[in-house]
C-alpha cells in the first residue's frame, strides 16, 4: 500500500497537466496488463483448438485412405500389416470390456464410500479418510500398471490357472480401485449439497440413517451421483498406462475380460513406442484412434458437466 500512497501524494503536488499525463500512462499500463492476462486465459482455448486441429487434420488424411464405414465395421485391426485392416471395433472392445470391469468395482464401492462418508461417518473420520483417498488418486498410473501386471495377475492366476499373463480383468480391477476416489468424492459432494432440512424432515419421521440416506439423500443428489459415475467412465475410457502394461497391446476383438486385448489408448502407446515415419498411414491411425477417444470422453464430460450444473441449480 505504501507505493499507492506515495503516488497519490505525487499527484497532489504535481501540476495539472503532468497529473493528467500520469493518469494516461497509468491507464495504458493497466490496459497492457489486462491484455497479457487475457492472453494467458486464451491459452486454454488455443489448447483445445490445437487438439481439435491436430486430431481432425490428421484424421482427415487417414479417412481419405480408409473409408469411415470400414473403420466402424471392419472386424480386424492390423494397421501395420501389408494386408491392413482398420476396424476400430477391435480396440473399442478392449476399451469397453476393461472400462466395464473397472466400473463394476468403482461404482458400487465408490457409492457406498460416498454414502458412508456423507451420512454415517463423523467429521473426524471424514477429515482423516478424505485426504487418504485423495492421495490414492494421486498415485501415478504406471505404478498401478506394475501392480496389476506383477501382483494382481499372479494373485488371480492362483484361482484361475488358465488366466494369461496379460488380461483385461486385472487391469480393469486395478483401474476400478484407481477410479473409486473420483467417483466417491464427486458423489459425496453431491450428497453433502443436499440441504440439512431435507434430512431433518426424514429423521423427524423416525427414519434411521440408512433410510434417510437411501430414501431421501440419494434421490435428492441423484443427478450429482450420475455425474460422478459418468466422470468415472470418462476416466476409465481414457486410462492408458495400466492397460498398456497389464492388458497387453495385441488387438483382439473380444468381450471376455479373461483375454488379453489392446485398448484405443494402448494402441497409441504401442505405435508411439515403435518408429513410424511421420505422415504414414500407420502414423495417422493413432490420430484417428485419438479422435475416437476424444469424442467418447467429450460426450461423457459434457453430460457430466450438465448433470453437475443441474444439481447445483436445484439447491
Amino acid at each position: 500500500m505504501s507505493g499507492t500512497a506515495v503516488s497519490t501524494l505525487d499527484q497532489a503536488m504535481s501540476p495539472a497537466e503532468s497529473r493528467l499525463s500520469h493518469r494516461a500512462s497509468r491507464h495504458i499500463k493497466e490496459k497492457i496488463i489486462e491484455s497479457v492476462l487475457f492472453l494467458a486465459a486464451l491459452v486454454s482455448v488455443f489448447t483445445t483448438l490445437g487438439i481439435v486441429y491436430i486430431l481432425v487434420s490428421e484424421s482427415v488424411v487417414f479417412f481419405s485412405h480408409v473409408p469411415l464405414w470400414d473403420f466402424l465395421t471392419d472386424k480386424q485391426w492390423t494397421p501395420l500389416f501389408d494386408d491392413a485392416h482398420f476396424g476400430i471395433m477391435v480396440l473399442l472392445s478392449g476399451t469397453l470390456v476393461s472400462s466395464g470391469v473397472a466400473l463394476l468395482v468403482a461404482i458400487p464401492l465408490g457409492t457406498v464410500i460416498a454414502v458412508f462418508l456423507s451420512e454415517f461417518a463423523g467429521p473426524r473420520l471424514r477429515e482423516i479418510v478424505k485426504p487418504m483417498l485423495e492421495l490414492l488418486s494421486g498415485v501415478p498410473t504406471i505404478v498401478y500398471g506394475y501392480f496389476a501386471l506383477l501382483f494382481v495377475t499372479p494373485l488371480l492366476q492362483r484361482f484361475m490357472p488358465e488366466l494369461p499373463g496379460f488380461n483385461l480383468l486385472s487391469a480393469g480391477l486395478v483401474m476400478g480401485i484407481m477410479i473409486i476416489p473420483t467417483v466417491s468424492s464427486i458423489a459425496e459432494d453431491a450428497m453433502r449439497a443436499v440441504p440439512m432440512n431435507l434430512r431433518e424432515g426424514s429423521y423427524a419421521m423416525g427414519a434411521t440413517r440408512l433410510q434417510t440416506a437411501l430414501k431421501v439423500v440419494v434421490p435428492a443428489a441423484f443427478s450429482g451421483i450420475m455425474a460422478a459415475y459418468i466422470l468415472g467412465i470418462s476416466r476409465a475410457v481414457g486410462e492408458t498406462m495400466i492397460l498398456a502394461v497389464a492388458a497387453g497391446m495385441q488387438p483382439n476383438l473380444t468381450w471376455n475380460p479373461l483375454e488379453p486385448a489392446a485398448t484405443i489408448t494402448a494402441f497409441i502407446v504401442q505405435v508411439a513406442l515403435g518408429d513410424l515415419p511421420h505422415g504414414s498411414v500407420g502414423y495417422q491411425t493413432i490420430f484417428a484412434a485419438g479422435l475416437t477417444l476424444m469424442l467418447m470422453t467429450l460426450v461423457f464430460n459434457i453430460l457430466g458437466y450438465w448433470l453437475r450444473k443441474k444439481y447445483r441449480e436445484q439447491y
Binding site: S202, A204, A207
Partner: peptide, 30 residues
C-alpha cells in the same frame, strides 16, 4: 421411537424429491 410418536413441521417446506403420494406416505413406509 420418540420421533415416530411426535411429528414435526419445519420452518421451510421440505418436500422430499418424490411424488406427493410418496411424501405423505413416507412416515408410514418408514
Amino acid at each position: 421411537e420418540v420421533r415416530m410418536r411426535l411429528s414435526m413441521v419445519f420452518q421451510k417446506p421440505n418436500p422430499f424429491p418424490k411424488s406427493i403420494f410418496e411424501n405423505v406416505a413416507y412416515g408410514l413406509r418408514v
